[in-house]
Measured scan of single mutants.
Amino acid sequence: FKEKSRSVLREWYAHNPYPSPREKRELAEATGLTTTQVSNWFKNRRQRDR
């Protein structure tokens, strides 16, 4: 993950740790990642924050 992608994901996570499928698609387009990568990033981040 590039730093720019991570910062976008972190910003979204601060507002909503559970993005909808549509939001995940938008994030994937904005970051250049796949929706699976975005989903996994959020899943891992939520697990880490437990």
Rank of each mutant, 00 (worst) to 15 (best):
V8N: 04
Q47E: 14
V8W: 02
R6Y: 10
E11F: 01
R25Y: 14
R48H: 12
S7Q: 15
G32H: 10
S39E: 15
W12M: 09
Q37N: 09
Q37T: 08
R10E: 14
R45N: 13
R10V: 13
S5T: 13
V38A: 03
Y18T: 10
L27N: 00
P19H: 02
H15Y: 11
W41F: 09
R48K: 10
D49G: 03
S39V: 03
A14N: 08
F42L: 03
A30N: 12
W41L: 00
L9F: 03
N40S: 10
K43A: 11
P21T: 14
L9E: 05
N44G: 08
F42Q: 00
Y13E: 02
E11M: 04
R25N: 14
E29F: 00
K4R: 08
Y18F: 11
T35D: 12
E23A: 05
E11T: 04
K43I: 08
W12F: 15
R50P: 01
T35H: 10
K43W: 06
R48I: 11
K2G: 09
R46V: 08
Q37E: 07
F1E: 05
F1V: 10
R10K: 15
A30K: 11
L33H: 03
Y18P: 02
K24A: 11
Q47L: 07
L33V: 05
S7M: 12
E11I: 03
E23W: 00
K4W: 07
A28R: 00
W41V: 01
R10A: 13
S20H: 04
E23Y: 03
G32L: 07
N40D: 06
R22N: 15
R10D: 12
L27I: 07
L27S: 02
Y18W: 07
N44C: 06
P21Y: 09
R50L: 15
H15N: 15
S39T: 14
E23K: 04
N40A: 07
R22G: 15
T31M: 05
D49H: 06
T34N: 15
P17G: 04
T36A: 10
R6V: 15
V8D: 06
G32V: 01
N16H: 03
A30G: 12
R45A: 10
N16D: 12
N44V: 07
D49N: 06
E23S: 04
S5E: 08
L9D: 01
W41G: 01
K4H: 10
P21L: 15
N44S: 08
W12D: 04
R22T: 15
P19K: 01
N44F: 12
N16I: 05
N44Y: 07
K4V: 09
R48N: 12
S7I: 14
H15F: 12
Q37Y: 09
A14M: 12
R10Y: 06
Y13P: 00
E23T: 02
D49L: 04
G32C: 07
T36K: 15
R46C: 06
W41R: 02
R6G: 10
N40H: 13
Q47P: 03
K43D: 13
K2S: 14
V8I: 14
S5N: 14
Y18G: 02
W12Q: 06
K43H: 09
V38I: 04
A30W: 08
F42T: 02
E29I: 08
R48F: 06
R46L: 08
R22H: 12
H15T: 15
E29V: 06
R22A: 15
R48T: 11
A14Q: 11
A14C: 15
F42G: 02
H15L: 13
R10I: 14
N40I: 10
W12P: 02
Q37I: 03
H15K: 13
T34L: 06
R50Y: 13
E29H: 03
K24G: 08
T35K: 12
Q37P: 00
E11A: 09
P17T: 08
S7R: 10
H15I: 14
P19T: 02
K43Y: 04
L27M: 08
R46G: 03
R6S: 12
V8M: 14
S20M: 08
F42E: 02
D49C: 03
Y18I: 08
K24V: 14
K4F: 09
F1C: 06
T31L: 12
P19R: 01
T31I: 08
R45P: 02
Y18R: 11
P17M: 14
T34Q: 06
E29Q: 03
N44M: 11
R25S: 15
Y13G: 00
T34V: 03
E23G: 00
R22M: 15
R48Q: 11
R45T: 13
E11R: 04
L27T: 00
R48S: 13
K24H: 15
R25C: 14
S7D: 14
A28N: 02
W41E: 03
R45S: 11
S39P: 01
E11W: 01
K2T: 13
H15G: 12
E11H: 05
L9A: 01
K24E: 15
R45Q: 15
W41M: 07
R50C: 06
A14S: 13
W41P: 02
W41K: 00
E3P: 03
K43T: 07
P21E: 13
E29Y: 01
K43P: 04
E29R: 04
W12H: 12
R45I: 06
N40W: 03
T31G: 03
Q37W: 06
S39L: 01
R50D: 07
K43M: 09
L33E: 05
E23C: 05
W41I: 00
E26G: 06
T31S: 11
W12N: 13
Q47N: 07
S5I: 15
Y18L: 13
K4A: 07
E26I: 10
R25P: 00
L27W: 01
R22I: 15
L33N: 05
K24S: 10
L33R: 07
R22P: 15
R50S: 15
E29G: 05
T36N: 14
G32D: 05
K2M: 09
P17R: 09
T34M: 04
R48G: 10
R10T: 11
Q47H: 12
V38H: 06
P19F: 01
R25L: 14
Y13H: 01
T36R: 14
S5W: 10
P21R: 07
S20Y: 06
Q47T: 09
A14D: 09
R46T: 06
P19N: 01
T35I: 10
T36Q: 13
N16E: 12
K24C: 12
D49F: 02
Y18K: 09
E26Y: 05
R25T: 13
R45W: 09
T35L: 11
L9S: 00
F42A: 00
N40F: 03
S39Y: 05
F1A: 02
P19I: 02
F42K: 01
Y13T: 00
Y13C: 01
E26M: 05
N40R: 13
A30Q: 10
R6I: 14
H15P: 01
T35N: 13
R6D: 12
H15M: 14
L9P: 01
K24P: 01
N40P: 01
S7W: 09
E29D: 11
Y18A: 08
R46D: 03
F1N: 07
T34K: 13
R22L: 15
